[in-house]
Amino acid sequence: MNRRLTHKVLLLHLSIVAGLFLAQFFLPEYHHTNLARIMVLATFAAGYNVLFGYTGLMSLGHAMFFAAGMYATGLSVYYLDFGALSAFFLGIAAAAAVAVLFGLFALRTSGVSFLIVTMMFGQACYLTILYFNTITLGDQGFTLSNNLAPLEIGQQQFAFSNPSVKFNGAWILFSISFVLSMVIAASPLGRVLVAIRENDERTKLLGYNTYLYKLMALVVSGSIAGAAGAGYALLFSYVGASFAAILYSIYPLLWTLLGGAGTTLGPLIGTGTMFYLIDIASGYTTAYLFVVGGSLLILVLWFPKGIVGSIRDRWIKWLP
């Protein structure tokens, strides 16, 4: 069917998905919780990667999609007693809506202006959450544990406080975004997005409406980021404005760059590496922002392709 989705690629991705699933039976408790968190955050990074890695549009405001998903889910559970599934899909829908609306304005600019505009709107979103503090409880944050009913599938009940439900919820979320990235990267749509990244003008000349494709990439990217936000709210039972702040727009950029922009594996590797770097560093010092800033500088100066990108360049050329 598709020459780019070879057996090798398929096998690699499925074995990683299976490996992550099996990890829950071996990992000690501390790393078990960490891996669950890493998988949700890697979903956020995978969404970011669709826009930045494949389409070549760097966004400095992706926290707004994460927060849109998180707040739509969190608020609907908190105030309206939504069930987990309907709240989750509402979260994705909210993030997609924000992405469409934002894209209609922001994609009118290009290059550096686009970057500035994303950062500005991301920050405006954060300020909006703080401004409506009486509703969003933004600066304090709130937990969902008292309002969220366990998920019922058939006769089974799944309580979100159970670590194993957290892990497998995160695993499902990540696996879907991971396989989706693989499919997008191999699909004709993905090839057009890469063409836009390499040369927007030429792609236009070939007859593609690049504006529409960019909008599509933005909406897919924003929806995946929103799904991560919605998943985070449900699985870790916390909603707060700090997830809309500028640092959470920089994190997915950092994770994607570190793992390798434009690789399907990059977001997971980058998120995991950074998570443990900060975790280890905070054992020695409270100054974890040095790690964030320092890694960004090192990546830009000496390591622009990231971990998976460098591996692909040197050894395994067929990595998508």
Partner: peptide, 28 residues
Amino acid sequence: ILKRVKYNPESTIVATIGLLYIIQQLVL
């Protein structure tokens, strides 16, 4: 920094974000 990334707009932005956090942390 800037001379080394040849004033590439995107690299510059990533680098100056890095600088932003380093300066913030130093002051903190």
